[in-house]
Amino acid sequence: MSISTPQAGGNRRPSKAVAGGKPTTGAKAKSDASAESDAPAKTDAPTKTTTTAKSGGKSGTTTAGGGSKARTAPGGRPGTRTGGSGGGRPGGGNRSGGGNRPPVVPVKVNSGRHWGPIILFTIVGLVAAGIVGFGVYEVQKNNQGWQDKADSIKGVVDYRKTEPNLLKAAQHAYGKVNYPQSPPVGGVHNPNWERCQGDVYPDQIPNENAVHALEHGSVWVTYNPSLAKDQVDKLASKVRGNDFMLMSPYPGLDKPISLQAWGFQLKLDSADDPRIDQFIQDLRVNASMETGATCGQDSQNYVTKTGTDPTNLGQSAAPTAAS
């Protein structure tokens, strides 16, 4: 900005702050008196020391202080010297205000542009903007949360959104539990979890133990027992030997295949569907309700039994008997 003011009455500091000081024009218009009274106090303030609107003397406060037109005084700040009528513009070109100053030769600003530096700065600017822009893009892309990624998989049902209460009810309970989803995706569950260290169970496993495995962050792969063997084998290859994965047939399943993580479900027709890998990538471990909880730990905590009735290892002398 200050570049455009050619006069440069000895002001060697074209700092923006000063130019910004302009608001004074508005202020002074309103309350001359108050502004004046303030003046002495804030000596250094480059701003509103203006005394009288007309005088245009909002110059260096320090020097002349009062209403004198001393704006040309040595200390004069760049933007300020333009007279009172200088309509907000910093360095507004009303040189006319330069009353007692010797007329200044207008300096050529437009002629003979230095294209070299201009091009250079443009390129540098574009490069800088490009770098920052790329950085922003990368960060944005990387920071898309796993939940958003999972939600973007076609066909995924996100029960965390539709049934938030289900997820709060992460209590332990012995006995059978009725789950609203089939297969279940979360809720009250047995104190013992079905081991989920890449376990491929040949038979149905209890919902109540499987849900506990979901709580620890595992992905539970279920399939209708009528699924072809090669399809089952393909599913098993995605599970076996992978921590936080378990798999079991699920009689009565309304689709050939269903994937569960805590609060998420995806039903599919084929083991070749690429969404299976996406589901696992986005939700395995991430969907844990208990960060750091394990899928194994020890055989006093996990179970590996199959069947439909929940397995209780720790239920000693329990009146809260299972059904």
Binding site: I3, P6, R12, P14
Partner: peptide
């Protein structure tokens, strides 16, 4: 103090 020109260059 400075000539206008000089000051302008300086400022630029």
């Amino acid at each position: 103090m400075f000539s206008g020109l000089f000051a302008t260059q300086r400022r630029r």
